[in-house]
Amino acid sequence: MSGYLALSLALFSIGALGVVLRRNLLVMLISIEVMLNAAILALVVFSRMYGSVDGRVMGILAIAVAAGEVAVGLALVIAFVRLRGRPDATAMDLLKW
């Protein structure tokens, strides 16, 4: 069980790393997907640990949420690229301190 949790944490961390490191907005969104997947893995692991269905049900619904979120994210990226020409985080410079 600990191994699976470590895997989950590793995926979560790598996802976070992707968000922090990459400038491409699409890759950032993909990294967020990795993070969400890590969380879903944790749910399934605990579901297995307790032998209850709850975690799995939560996981299923969380997959739906992740998909919905990515849809909105992609829509925003498209709108952003229309305005600024490239899906680059460094192009987000209109809002400042």
Binding site: S8, M35, A39, F46, E69
Partner: peptide
């Protein structure tokens, strides 16, 4: 979305 991932992870651990 990143914060949501944290939240979901937290919920998973709370469940765990």
């Amino acid at each position: 979305a990143m914060a949501s991932a944290f939240l979901l992870m937290g919920i998973a651990f709370a469940y765990g």
